[in-house]
Design a binder for these strands. Sequence first.
DNA 1: GCACATGTTGGTAA
DNA 2: GTTACCAACATGTG
Length: 292
Amino acid sequence: MPELPEVETIVRGLAKVIVGQKIISLKTTALKGDKIIIEDIKTSSNLPSIVGGVKKKFISAVIGSTIKGINRRGKSIIIELSGGHSLIVHLKMTGQLIYTDSSDKVIKHTHLIFNLSDGKELRYVDVRRFGYIKIFPSENIFLEHPLDTLGHEPIEIKIGELRELLSNHKIRMKSFLLNQSFMSGIGNIYADEILHRSHMHPLKISSNLSGKETAKLHKMIKEVLREAIEHRGSTIRDYVTSTGEAGDFQKMHRVYNKEGKPCRCCQGKIIKIRAGGRSTFFCPACQPIDDK
DNA sequence: GCACATGTTGGTAA
DNA sequence: GTTACCAACATGTG
């Protein structure tokens, strides 16, 4: 679920509270029937499966280190630690990073708990366990996967750079926006919302965009992402901010998950198709293909 | 039981 | 080489 606006919201929230803090200890959970048992991580014997990268270094590099910074690249979170290592966190579908009181109830699917020097905790929760926390040396961190494959930041991309990407490929626009090596951070929800505001059909071929269409798309990419960040992201199911609150931007969605509903521009019906292997919502009346 | 789900990757086919 | 499609990852929801 988390796309660029959600990850940005989490990073901004955490930056205010975890930078400068020392990581005192690590914990994980185990299930005994219905009971959640909290376990200390002291050796790699109970390191949760969501930990990756240079795993042998994880415990010694993390415990006792100080958090120097937290940043975002695409949908990845980079946490820089003192001592020369950094963590790459990817939330994938259902991952959550929550800063909370240590007295708050530890919920099911909490895989990693960082005990911080202010007495609070940073918890990684992930129902489906597709996400991960990987550790690498900070030097050359941007050469580590997946950071090495990421394209432009969509909020910063110049129109000339976008035009070049579009014309160099003959790919459906939905797939274009989802491809993280072109631009990194746009996922299924924002791809549909950007295409609708650009009045562009999701199956339109990238190399066929006119100059005017390219300019509109460029503007809408930034507009949608900026508004979504202002609303602290879209909560459909699992996403919460670093304080466990829901975002607001789902209320502003114009097409995502609105099959059969009237389009706010033309009152036509929004339809759902499959594109790029994903559910794709759009208004056929005001998002024409126009390919001649 | 069945279909489907917000992300990414890797294999295969065209 | 490029693009499209599907399965896989593990679990939950309707």
